[in-house]
C-alpha cells in the first residue's frame, strides 16, 4: 500500500534514509523503539517494523525519556515535526538536550504544519506565507542547530532531503552516538508550503536545498568569511555535522552517581542492624 504522504513529500525520503541507516548499523529490530508525536512527521512510525509508539503532540521526547530510563539498552529514535519539536514540544526538547539522554531526535523541518493544512510553524521563515499568516509570517524562526547547541545536545547535525546520502550517514552516526543527538532535516512540503510560497514542486524545492546550502567543515565551522555582511543578501544554510562530543549520558550518570551509591548505602545500613 502506498504511504499516506503527498506526492513529493520529503518525509518519505527521511524514512528511506532512516531505514538505510538502521540497515547499515545492523541493529536488531527488537532493540529499536520509535516514538513519534502528532503530525505528518509522526506517521513515519507506522511504516517501520520496530517497537512503535504514536503519542501526543509535542510529548514524544517525554515518553522516550521514560522508556529509555526504564530500559536503557533500547535504541530510542524520536522523529518529530516543527511543532512537535519546537512549538508545543519545545520545552521537552531543550530539557532532553540538557540531560543528554541517549535518544536520537530527528527534526523533519518543512517550515509548515502540514497535517492541519498549512499553518505557519516556529521554523517558518519571517515573511513566508501560510494559512494563518496570509500577510506573511511576522514571527522569527528558531535556528535548530543553535538552539540544540545552547540546550546542550552532544550531537548536532543538519541535512536536507536532497543530501540523502549524507542524511543516511548522519542518522547512522546519530543513532550510534551515546547521548542526545539531534538531526535536523530540511524537508519539502510541496502541497502546503510550496503552494503558499510559490516555491514550485518537490523538485524545485530540493534544487534549492542543493543550491542554497553550504557544507560545514570537519570541525563544524561554516566556510567563507560571513562577517560584515550587512546587505541582507540570502545566506546559504550551513549543513553537515556541527557537534559530536563525549558528555556523561543521563541514564549512565543516574546509574553510577545515584543508584549504585544508594544501593551500597542501603546494603551497609541493613548489615549494621542485622544481629
Amino acid at each position: 500500500m502506498p504511504h499516506i504522504w503527498c506526492p513529493g513529500c520529503g518525509h518519505g525520503i527521511v524514512l528511506n534514509s532512516l531505514l538505510r541507516a538502521v540497515e547499515k548499523l545492523q541493529l536488531e529490530r527488537n532493540d529499536i523503539v520509535m516514538i513519534s508525536g502528532i503530525g505528518c512527521s509522526a506517521r513515519i512510525q507506522g511504516y517501520v517494523d520496530f517497537h512503535t509508539m504514536h503519542t501526543l503532540h509535542g510529548r514524544a521526547l517525554a515518553f522516550a525519556t521514560g522508556i529509555k530510563m526504564a530500559w536503557p539498552l533500547l535504541k530510542v529514535i524520536v522523529p518529530m515535526g516543527d511543532g512537535d519539536a519546537l512549538a508545543i514540544g519545545g520545552n521537552h526538547f531543550i530539557h532532553a538536550a540538557r540531560r543528554n539522554i541517549d535518544v536520537t531526535a530527528i527534526i523533519m523541518n518543512n517550515s509548515i504544519y502540514g497535517m492541519t493544512g498549512g499553518q505557519h510553524s516556529p521554523l517558518t521563515q519571517c515573511g513566508d506565507h501560510a494559512t494563518t499568516a496570509p500577510y506573511g509570517t511576522v514571527d522569527s524562526p528558531f535556528d535548530v542547530v543553535q538552539l540544540a547547541s545552547a540546550a546542550g545536545a552532544s550531537f548536532i547535525a543538519r541535512t536536507t532531503t536532497y543530501h540523502a546520502r549524507d542524511m543516511t550517514r548522519l542518522l547512522a552516526a546519530a543513532i550510534e552516538h551515546k547521548g542526545f543527538s539531534v538531526v535536523e532535516v530540511l524537508s519539502q512540503c510541496p502541497t502546503y508550503y510550496g503552494r503558499k510560497n510559490d516555491a514550485g514542486d518537490a523538485v524545485a524545492m530540493m534544487e534549492r536545498f542543493r543550491d542554497e546550502t553550504v557544507k560545514v567543515t570537519a570541525d563544524g565551522a561554516v566556510p567563507g568569511d560571513r562577517s560584515g555582511r550587512m546587505d541582507g543578501a540570502h545566506e546559504p544554510v550551513p549543513v553537515g555535522l556541527f557537534r559530536r562530543e563525549e558528555r556523561p549520558e543521563y541514564c549512565e550518570a543516574y546509574r553510577t552517581r545515584v543508584m549504585e551509591p544508594a544501593l551500597e548505602q542501603a546494603q551497609s545500613a541493613a548489615r549494621d542492624v542485622s544481629p
Binding site: I35, M53, T55, L56, R59, A62, F63, A64, T65, G66, I67, K68, M69, A70, N91, H92, H95, Y254, V258, M259, P261, A262, L263, Q265, A266
Partner: peptide, 23 residues
C-alpha cells in the same frame, strides 16, 4: 534508588506523566 528504582524530576507535569507511561 535504594531499591534499584528510578526517580526523575521532569520539566513539567505533562512530561512527568508521559514518561511514566513510557516506563
Amino acid at each position: 534508588p535504594q531499591v534499584g528504582g528510578t526517580c526523575i524530576q521532569m520539566e513539567d507535569e505533562i512530561g512527568s506523566l508521559c514518561s511514566v507511561i513510557g516506563a
